[in-house]
Design a protein around this nucleic acid. Structure first.
Lengths: 217, 217
DNA sequence: TCTATAATTAACTCACCAGTTAGTTAATTA
DNA sequence: TAATTAACTAACTGGTGAGTTAATTATAGA
């Protein structure tokens, strides 16, 4: 069954994949069904055949992207027991996932900048779950007296929002750095370095006493 | 001259104002020239008469919004001499400006999530200037040994990006808090409180030794 | 091998929207 | 006050994009 002339799953996947890329590059409105169809060498009608309408496709795309990252963070986050280690795992996993799937950040930011006006319920709850996760890590740490004065929402945006922005603005930052040499836009920072820096700064923000080695297995 | 039947400046201003609101609420593509025209009770043709095309109008809107915030931050930032006071002024001014002009954050975020694909040159340089400002404050502080290990780009996003996100997500955060009571989404934090919190955390991040009163005149 | 069904396609429709145009009315100036 | 210009309008156009439809082809099961 390696190659078939007809393979529903394969075409569905092709559509999702290309739609994700195009949506994240050009936004929802500026991406046409024809664009997506030609991008994956599939007849436009197939999009409507499988996903009913454009909004349905969009929802499917976001669902895919969000559930993927959610399980990734959830599963890898179990690695250690201390809140500090969990925090580190959270940041690192999110960073590495986003690096491998650079479409997600711009999709998320766009959605947030819409203030979720047309945000489908599923997406909303998925985003909430990710926040809840960090929120729980923070309250746990606070109860154990490891973290001080953690407003979860603001901390969440300082971590996740900043990583999202660093990814989506990469080309912009490069351009700015070329135009104005004395400007340090972190234009060739790797995502790992960024995650590292953010983790260090988050520890300072939360006034974590002292590093009793936090590296995971 | 209080009321004229014809007032070019007034209609131009009306168009900009309503366009700004609609663009920030619905995005560029989803906002039609007809929408804007009816919103300000002006004939659609006037939009093209004054701004040539939709892109021209958009550029004018962004130019307006950005130059306003830029001068606001620039002028009020002069208040003190120390980098720490300047940092505080930067954060506070940005916060209060955004609160009064809640359109800007969503416009900015949308633009950033586009990775500046259609970003007009003027806007790009305007955004750069704001970043340059913070960048200079940080390097000054670092030279004086007040700030430690400041990566300007990341710090910038942790401050400005977070404030932008807190503003645009306000309705979303409210909804999430209502659905899930135990979740603290900072849903009734004022912008002042948020700015305060961010400033406090930024000081920790930059390892500022100790507060020798930073309030401005 | 025949048949039912799922996958796929080309060629449409219809609504909507950016931008135009030709003409009208108010203000300005000579 | 006549003429010129600037502000404004109603009605149009052309293109585009979401979604449909009716027909066609592959595939699996009996």
């Amino acid at each position: 069954m390696p190659k078939q002339k007809r393979d529903a799953e394969a075409t569905k996947a092709k559509i999702i994949k290309n739609a994700m890329i195009l949506f994240s590059q050009n936004g929802y409105d500026a991406t046409t069904a024809d664009d997506i169809a030609t991008a994956c060498g599939v007849n436009k009608a197939m999009i409507f055949y499988y996903y009913k309408n454009k909004a349905g496709l969009y929802e499917a795309v976001m669902s895919e992207a969000l559930s993927a990252i959610h399980t990734e963070v959830i599963t890898s986050e179990k690695c250690c027991v201390s809140p500090l280690a969990d925090l580190e795992a959270f940041i690192r996993t999110y960073a590495s996932y986003c690096e491998q799937n650079p479409y997600l950040p711009s999709l998320l930011l766009r959605e947030l900048s819409n203030s979720g006006t047309h945000l489908p319920e599923m997406m909303f709850s998925s985003m909430r779950q990710l926040f809840t996760l960090l929120s729980e890590i923070l309250t746990a740490g606070q109860k154990q007296g490891i973290f001080q004065n953690a407003q979860p929402m603001i901390i969440y945006f300082m971590i996740v929002g900043t990583m999202n922005l660093m990814i989506t603005t990469k080309p912009l930052r490069l351009k700015a750095a070329q135009l104005q040499e004395e400007l340090d836009t972190c234009s060739d920072c790797s995502m790992e370095e960024i995650a590292d820096y953010i983790f260090t700064k988050t520890k300072l923000m939360l006034e974590v006493k002292n590093e009793t080695s936090t590296t995971c297995a």
